[in-house]
Design a protein around this nucleic acid. Structure first.
Lengths: 343, 343
DNA sequence: AACCTTAATGCAATCGGTTGCTCACAGGTC
DNA sequence: GACCTGTGAGCAACCGATTGCATTAAGGTT
C-alpha cells in the first residue's frame, strides 16, 4: 500500500511559498489577504482538490463549538418504525450539514451504556435515543447531560429525566381508531396492548377508554389483554373469539399483533370485517400485504425522526436553550382499509 | 449554558504535579513509569472518569493509522433488506471496536457524490456502499480509492471498478426456487424480473433458465416480464393469468412483486398454490403477513452486512492487502411456505 | 525627511494526546 | 573517587487548522 497522504494546507503553503496562516485565511476568503494571492491559493486548492481535515478543525474548535456529528441510538434497525425514524433523522441532519453515527442497543442496558460512552469519546454534538426495554438506571444519560451533551428521546422516553422528547399522539390516535370502530357498528372492542409500565401503553389505553365512554360504552376487564406481538396474538385471540360473547372488534398496539388477530379470526371461519373488525397501530409495510389490508393508525416515523433532529440541532446551535426540555408531539392519522367496516 | 469542559490529561497532570507525557504513559501502562505513579494516575483518572479524546488521538495518528469509523451508504433505510444489512454491518463493526456513520443516497447520484466527499472529510477508514440506481460515473469512487480509502460494495456492485464486493448467491437461489416449483408440479413458470442491466437480474434469470433446462423445460419468451414492484405486478399478472394458457407458477425478483401476483391471482378466483404457485425473493417481513404466507428465497441481509464489514475491517487492518478485491458470496436458502405446492 | 496609517503577511500558540530524545540521579563496578 | 548502566521522568515536536498579535513595507501627511 503506497502510503497516501491527503493534501494539507502545509503542502499548499510550501508549494506556493506562503505561510500556512495565509493559506488558511485565503481559503476563508479573508480580506486581509490580497486579491491576487487569495485567488491564486483558491485556484491551487481547487485544482488539486484540497479539502479540509474535519478532525483537525474539530480539535481546534473543541473548546468553543461542538462537532457536527449526531449520535443516534436505535433499539433495532430491522423494524419498520425505527428505520422510518432513522430516515427522518438522517434527512434533517444532512439538510443542516450534520452527519449521523448510529448504533443498536439491541434492547440491552449494557450496550446502551457502552454506546453512550463511545459516543461521548467520539465527541458527538448530541444524542437521539429510544431507551432499551430493560433500562431502569439512568446514570449514563445523566453523565451525558453533565458533560454538556444534549439528549433527545423518541418513542420510549425516559420519564425520570427532564430531557427533550418527541412522541406520537398515542392518546388521540387510539381515540380516533376506537371511535371509528364504534361508529362503524362495533360494540365489544378488545384492547391488545403492551405492558402498562410504558407510557405509550397508558396513553393508548386511555384513548381507547375515553372513546368508549364518549359513545356510551364501558370498557370490560376481560377484553383488555397484555398482548403485543404476532405469536401471542395467535394464542390469545382465538381464546376470546371462541367465547359465546366474542368481541366484534380488536384494537391492537401494533400491526404485527393486528395481523395475528386477523389470521386467527380467518382460521376460525369468521369474516373480517363483518364478524370481527381489526385495527392496528403503526402502518407498517405489513399493513398492505395482509388480506384484507389492515386499517391502522399511521405513526409517521419519518416525522418523528425529523422532529427529533430539529430539536437536537436547535439545541446544539443555541436556538433552544440547553436546559429547555422540548416536548414535541407528532400527529397520527387513521388509515381505513379492509379490516374495518364501511360507515 | 455553563461551559462544560471534559477532563484532559493536562488537568490530571496539573492536579498530580506530573507532566502530561507521564500521564499519557501511565494510562497506557508503560513500564517506563514507576509502579506507584502509574497506579496513582490510573486511580485518579478512574475516579474522575477521564476518557480520552478520540478526535485528538485520531489527529495525532492520522499519518500512520486510520480512524475507526466506517462510512456506510444505503440507498434507502426503510427497506427490509437494507436495514438488515445495516444491522449486520453495525454488529460486526461494534464487535471489532468500530463505529459507523451512515447516510442515505436516496438513489441519486448527486447525493452519493456529496456523501463520499463528506465521508472523506470526516476521515472514515473505509466505505461500504450499494450504489444509487442512476449512478453511471465512478469518479467519486475512484477518488476514494486514490485517497487510500478502501471500498466494499454490497448488493448493487459497481462492475466498472475492481473493488471488493459482497453479494448473495442469486444464481443458485433462483435455481433452487425454480427447481422447487418444477418438482412440485409446475410446468409453465413465469419470470418477473428487474431490468437486465443489473447484474443480479442476469444471474437470477440464468438460474431460472438453467433450472428449467435441467428439468427438460424450455423458457418461453412471453413468460419473461420486466416487473419488479407491487403496482406493476397488479397490472401485469392479471394479463398473464387471464390468458388461455396461463402460467401455473411465478418466480419474482422480490417479495413485494410476489405479493402483487398473489393477490391478483386470488382476485381472479384462482387458488394459490393449487392453480397458481408463487415464489418470491428476499424473505421480507411481508412474506409472513400475506395469506397464504409466501414461499421465498431468504436473502440473509444480516450476513451480507456482517461479511461486508469483515472484508472492510480486514482490509483496513492490513489482514487483506488493499489492492485485493475480495469477492464474497453469501448463500441463500429456499423457505417453503404456503404459496407453493406440497412435494 | 520624519511620522503615521493601513494593508498584507507571517509567527507562534492552541486544541489533546503521543513519542523520540534527553536528562538527572541512583546504584553498581573497578 | 571515577566511570558506567539503567531507571524514571520531562521536554518538545508533531498531527492540521485557526487566530491574536507582531512585523513589514508601501503610501500619505505635514
Amino acid at each position: 500500500m503506497e502510503e497516501f497522504q491527503a493534501l494539507t494546507m502545509k503542502d499548499i503553503a510550501a508549494q506556493l511559498g506562503v505561510s500556512v496562516a495565509t493559506v488558511s485565511r485565503a481559503l476563508k476568503d479573508s480580506h486581509n489577504i490580497s486579491k491576487e494571492r487569495r485567488e491564486m491559493i483558491q485556484k491551487y486548492a481547487r485544482e488539486h482538490n484540497y479539502y479540509p481535515n474535519v478532525i483537525a478543525e474539530q480539535l481546534r474548535h473543541s473548546r468553543k463549538k461542538p462537532s457536527q456529528i449526531i449520535g443516534v441510538i436505535i433499539p433495532e434497525f430491522v423494524h419498520y418504525y425505527f428505520s422510518s425514524i432513522l430516515k427522518g433523522v438522517e434527512e434533517e441532519a444532512s439538510r443542516r450539514g450534520y452527519r449521523i453515527m448510529v448504533a443498536q442497543s439491541g434492547e440491552t442496558y449494557e450496550r446502551e451504556v457502552e454506546i453512550c460512552q463511545s459516543f461521548m469519546q467520539n465527541k458527538v454534538c448530541g444524542i437521539i435515543v429510544s431507551q432499551a426495554k430493560d433500562t431502569n438506571q439512568y446514570g449514563h444519560f445523566e453523565k451525558l447531560v453533565e458533560n454538556g451533551i444534549p439528549l433527545v428521546f423518541y418513542d420510549r422516553i425516559c420519564p425520570a429525566l427532564n430531557a427533550s422528547r418527541v412522541v406520537v399522539d398515542d392518546y388521540q390516535g387510539a381515540f380516533n381508531a376506537v371511535s371509528h370502530l364504534v361508529e362503524t357498528g362495533c360494540r365489544r372492542i378488545a384492547f391488545f396492548g403492551a405492558p402498562m409500565s410504558l407510557e405509550i401503553s397508558q396513553n393508548r389505553y386511555n384513548g381507547y377508554k375515553d372513546a368508549l365512554y364518549k359513545h356510551g360504552l364501558t370498557p370490560e376487564e376481560e377484553l383488555t389483554v397484555i398482548c403485543d406481538n404476532y405469536e401471542d396474538a395467535r394464542k390469545r385471540a382465538p381464546e376470546l373469539l371462541r367465547a359465546d360473547n366474542r368481541p366484534d372488534a380488536f384494537f391492537t398496539v401494533n400491526d404485527d399483533t393486528a395481523i395475528g388477530v386477523l389470521y386467527s379470526a380467518k382460521e376460525l371461519g369468521l369474516r373480517v370485517p363483518d364478524d370481527v373488525a381489526v385495527c392496528g397501530f403503526g402502518n407498517d409495510t405489513h399493513a398492505v400485504s395482509c388480506d384484507p389490508m389492515l386499517t391502522t393508525v399511521e405513526q409517521r416515523g419519518v416525522d418523528v425522526g425529523r422532529e427529533a433532529a430539529t430539536v437536537l440541532i436547535d439545541t446544539v446551535e443555541g436556538v433552544l436553550p440547553i436546559d429547555h426540555a422540548a416536548k414535541r408531539v407528532v400527529k397520527t392519522r387513521l388509515i381505513v382499509r379492509g379490516t374495518t367496516r364501511e360507515a
